[in-house]
Nucleic acid binder design. Sequence first.
RNA 1: GCUGAUGUAGCUCAGUUGGCAGAGCGAUUCACUCGUAAUGAAUAGGUCGGCGGUUCGAAUCCGCCCAUCAGCUCCA
Length: 647
Amino acid sequence: MAQIKVTLPDGSIKEVAKGISAGEIVKSISEGLYRNALAVKINDEVSDLNVAVNDDCNFKVLTFSDAEGKQVYWHTASHILAQAVKRIYPTAKLAIGPSIKTGFYYDIEFKTNVTQDDFAKIESEMQKIIKADFSIERKEMSKKEAKKYFEKADEDYKVELVEDIPDDKVSFYTQGEFTDLCRGPHLPSTGKVKAFKLTQLAGAYWRGNENNKMLTRIYGTAFDKKKDLDEYLAKVEEAKKRDHNKIGRELGYFMTDENIGQGLPLLMPKGTQLFETLTRFVEDEEKRRGYVRTKTPYMAKSNLYKISGHWDHYLDGMFVIGDEMKDKEVFALRPMTCPFQYTIYNNGLKSYRDLPIRYGETSTLFRNESSGEMHGLIRIRQFTLSEGHIICTPEQLESEFIGVLDLIKYIMNSVGLYNDLTFRFSRWDPNNKEKYIYEPEVWEKAEAKMKQILDHIGLDYVEAIDEAAFYGPKLDIQIANVYGKEDTLITIQIDMFLSKNFDMTYIDENGEKQYPYIIHRSSMGCYERTMALLLEKYAGAMPFWLAPVQVKVLSITDRAAEKANEIKDYLEDRGIRTEVDNRNEKIGYKIREAQLEKIPYMFILGDKEVENNVVSVRHRKDGDLGCKTVEEIVSIMLEEVRLKKCD
RNA sequence: GCUGAUGUAGCUCAGUUGGCAGAGCGAUUCACUCGUAAUGAAUAGGUCGGCGGUUCGAAUCCGCCCAUCAGCUCCA
């Protein structure tokens, strides 16, 4: 019998009979491993354990501890969900059911209303399917047969999916009475799934297109040990406690009011203090790096947006004041700062010697988001961006771009978020003619230029199609919130269109008029959103330099009250934000309150301290630090501020 | 905008088949002057998200609207 060579990850080679199943190979390596095996990876391709191995190959066994193993596990779990659903709701139509980062989902069209209350029923049916331990069989058929099969089964979505598969052969997986169209791979049997839970229910458009029918999406997750599932669920619950939308309100950073409106949060004194600390820091740092600052209007006539292209490409996102049909003048609140700073640039003729010009502005913007999109401080209708535009020559583009990245790195490091960021190169989609200014050559040039810069500096990024701005490609700097949902925190964009629209030029060395390059950029992103992510990162316990209240002086008896006020004045004079608690309460109670407010330092002041001219220092995390003179502790705190320490 | 859930005192939440609006924490007042995460007592606090309907009677049933949450879509 013919033999083939299988190379294992440790480099060892195993000779096996040609045509043997992957599962048999695993079993021959180790029985224990076989029990945990979910799938295999043959030359970079993940396959079922049932697959026959016919050639020499690299061979890796996938278990639940491999990311790819988890994906297979969750994919099978989604099929079990679908099977259970079809048993309970035979008229339900199945769409797609993939694995995702933290589990799986299945999109289903139900004829009846299904809510979370139905989960228990579905879960117990899933449990039955797992207990039955159906073996999962793969088979192939032609597209024509497949289509016929699903037409007969009245599965419209599957029919549509089959039609879109380019190959003539399509694969199926069958477990018990249930068969689903699926590329696979899958676990060998349903009994392999141990601990699972359906987690949430949501609507989702068929094919992600809002013009299509909305299906019901059931989310779930699964683990190979009950304990790990419980731990995961507990961790999710724990993460929710850090939700800025909860602690930001509890700690008095912001509030909302139904009479003010959706997406219009009110920053309360603490939120405003943090906002001001952040904006001043950014403004000072940008000035240091050669930015000049502007302060431009919050609204403008529609003319301006017609020139910029916003009227054509962004009208839905704008708040328009007036009616073009009735009013002589129509205004709109600005959704972006670009046209305003460009107008400043155009005031006076510019020479190549004037470039680069770096304009910065702490810019309040207005975007008319749809009602379902608002979220705490993360998605709002009025927000303030650390906005700016760099106008430069083609030769200056790369060094300016790098300068922007360096600024972002410094700023994000200072608030402790830099290591949580990921980079996304967002490109246009030539097929999306609605969204973008359609000039393919210009796009190609801009994207090539950006890619060249990114690759040159060796930035680690992913590419995303159809995520660009309407006027140019972006480098989006992404961050995840407590729910794991990713958002753009900062973007840097290269714009090769608007300088022409605004007739922005400079005179080059030869006395010729040239169009400059423009970099749109932010350094800290939108302050509200950044504040939200800081609240989540630190669970409300802001680094000392950012904390709205840095010190609380707690008097033990009213004999110390006067001294407490003196200390507050001393600290405030040195720029340390201080509050005094002279209330007639027990010291334990005052400490508890300051602790719950997450105030970094508490100074406890009784007869003993007043007499010795010291304060008893307590840190919110490190506890009692003993007695220190005020001068001593103030110098420690000022050093923390200088270093912008984040822990 | 769409799907689903939610909205009762400042906060967290009870409130049965439609029949007098409840608790804990917080707040206020008084007493206590206290040593590193909750002193005690008393008092006040409500258009039950809003508007309309059904009913002798609505926090409770129905409709519309507003807001909040998760997800989709869209975006910083």
